[in-house]
Design a protein around this nucleic acid. Structure first.
Length: 582
DNA sequence: CTAGGGTTAG
């Protein structure tokens, strides 16, 4: 037995586990008849070895398990762990159910593995079931399991439950805090994530580590809260967490997402540790979304020269750069060269190149690509094409794309509105009415967009037509003033297109209707001394706002930077950095 | 002893 344990130790030490040793063990157990011994822990170790083997030996592990006359909890857990890590975690959930149906005891480990699987397949129902199980057996006193549970809730989008678990946990440790901070950052509650990070620092029970700052930095990036991000960067340097590449990547990304491209590059350039693939990708993407196509492509090349092999994300970043800078032929060439470099294009690459061709007016080529890939499952490509159709006023192709989208069961208001607007541009009011009616029949939900602006270290959030801000009266007054000034400067023609397509009764307030306009107006009120204001939007900045902000920037002689989910827009002197965008 | 929290793309 002692001998066997030594052998086992050998098997799992330094990760280089050898099949030979495992086979030896296995043979020994079988010949001595110990394989069926319930109390023999090495058996489940062997099963676990096969279940987690990178050589895809899960089926073999399963077969071994079936040979056991009376499997123990550990044996069950070994298979469960393998299933949870496999490409089909659903099977882990099924396995867990089967385990409950039998008379087998499950322990904290069982719950932990099953929860891991739930997180991967976003199985809320099972999570609830396991949660009640955990409560019944008092496992919540276990910090590890509590954290897993919290994490699963956050990942399946049940942030409220995640917070509840955090509050009710008997024992918390640093991972519990980290899981909640990261969960909040991911779950559209970035400001709460930042608050929790501050609270953690203040309470001082746990010292924020690498993982903590990753969550907090992600939150700052989402919010565009560069002041808070700056403080975290200071903390990282003080605590020497910047020896970790992952942390550095997150810092670069945070600065890039906040619009501070120079700061991002500074960190990239002065990095103390070895740059990883992600480091390069993050920086290329930063240049790309900021509209500096040439620099992005240059860095992409440089990356290859530095001996770093580009992956799918690198190509996506490079394509994004071409897209933004209008480098159509470069983009197509890059796209075609992917296969030679051993990188298989995915939906995002197709989407990018379709967008690129579409914006350049090469609609037929774009359409051909969409047809060649889309197996009738991917809506994004057709939506992209539809957007391009609107840009070039191609009604026929727009109808084809719309029909496809409806066939696929699109419930996206944008798909309908786009077609409607296109008809409206040709004054085909009957068709407009038809589309609006279809929308009503299908009960298409409108997705409320929102924007953030950071003023004096405080983050303000605005929804469309939002009146919840304490200064809402002032903000709307400012919007009136903006409208008046724009007209006064003789841009009435420009604004008429802004007002186009809005119902008669809404025209009066058209300027107030978008969250980014509210944020810009608030910025103008609050930051009179600054030359530039920054707004962050969770969705794409719409064409109306793009036009209006261009005008505001000119009339008020200010630089206005708006970041949306797609890219940065720098408005200055009546122009935008992304000239090709509309 | 075995288990939990993590960077780019969306």
């Amino acid at each position: 037995m002692a001998n066997l344990n030594a052998l086992l130790q050998k098997c799992s030490s330094n990760g280089a586990v050898s099949h030979i040793h495992i086979k030896q063990l296995q043979a020994h157990l079988t010949t001595t008849g110990q394989f069926q011994s319930k109390l023999f822990p090495v058996r489940s170790k062997i099963i676990e070895f096969y279940a987690l083997s990178p050589l895809n030996e899960l089926a073999y592990a399963h077969a071994l398990f079936r040979q056991i006359n009376a499997p123990s909890t550990n044996d069950f857990n070994a298979v469960l762990r393998g299933l949870a890590h496999s490409s089909k975690p659903t099977n882990a959930v099924l396995w867990y159910r089967q385990m409950l149906r039998g008379s087998h005891r499950s322990d904290a480990l069982t719950c932990s593995f099953a929860l891991k699987a739930c997180a991967r397949v976003l199985a809320l129902f099972e999570t609830l079931q396991i949660h009640s199980h955990v409560l019944r057996h008092g496992f919540l006193a276990d910090a590890l399991l509590g954290t897993t549970l919290l994490d699963v809730y956050a990942k399946v989008g049940e942030i409220v439950s995640a917070k509840k678990v955090f509050d009710e946990m008997g024992v918390r440790d640093i991972a519990s805090w980290n899981a909640l901070i990261a969960g909040l950052a991911q779950g559209n509650l970035a400001s709460e994530a930042v608050d929790l990070f501050k609270r953690m620092k203040m309470e001082g029970v746990f010292k924020p580590n690498e993982v903590t700052v990753l969550g907090a930095l992600a939150a700052c990036g989402h919010l565009g809260a560069w002041k808070e991000g700056d403080k975290i960067h200071d903390y990282i340097r003080e605590e020497r967490l910047d020896m970790n590449v992952v942390v550095c990547n997150a810092v670069i990304d945070m600065y890039a997402k906040c619009g501070l491209l120079d700061k991002a590059f500074e960190v990239f350039d002065n990095i103390k540790c070895r740059k990883s693939l992600v480091t390069w990708n993050t920086m290329v993407m930063a240049f790309a979304v900021h509209g500096d196509g040439p620099r992005a492509l240059e860095l992409f090349e440089q990356m290859g020269r530095a001996g770093v092999k580009p992956d799918d994300v690198s190509y996506l970043a490079a394509l994004c750069a071409c897209n933004h800078a209008g480098l159509v032929d470069d983009g197509v060439r890059l796209f075609n060269s992917m296969a030679n470099c051993g990188v298989k294009p995915n939906m995002k690459h197709y989407g990018s190149v379709v967008d690129l061709l579409g914006r350049a007016g090469r609609l037929q080529e774009a359409c051909d690509i969409v047809k060649s890939v889309s197996m009738g499952t991917d809506m994004v490509l057709w939506q992209t094409l539809l957007g391009a159709c609107q840009l070039y006023g191609d009604v026929e192709m727009a109808e084809i794309a719309s029909r496809k989208l409806v066939e696929m069961g699109s419930n996206n208001c944008g798909d309908f509105v786009l077609l409607s607007n296109l008809y409206a541009a040709y004054e085909r009011w009957d068709d407009v009415g038809r589309v609006r009616k279809a929308m009503k029949n299908r009960d298409v939900k409108k997705v409320p967009g929102f924007s953030y602006i950071e003023v004096g270290g405080v983050i303000h959030k605005f929804f469309t037509s939002d009146k919840s801000h304490v200064k809402w009266r002032e903000i709307y007054e400012k919007l009136d003033e903006i409208m008046f000034k724009i007209k006064e400067y003789g841009y009435a023609a420009g604004t008429s297109c802004v007002l186009h397509d809005i119902g008669e009764e809404e025209k009066e307030n058209a300027l107030c209707y978008h969250s980014e306009k509210l944020a810009v107006a608030f910025g103008l009120i609050s930051t009179s001394e600054a030359t530039s204001i920054q707004v962050f939007k969770n969705l794409r900045i719409c064409r109306d706002c793009h036009d209006v902000i261009k005008l505001i920037a000119k009339v008020y002689n200010r630089e206005i930077i708006v970041r949306d989910r797609v890219r940065f827009h720098r408005f200055k002197d009546g122009a935008c950095s992304c000239k090709d965008y509309w």
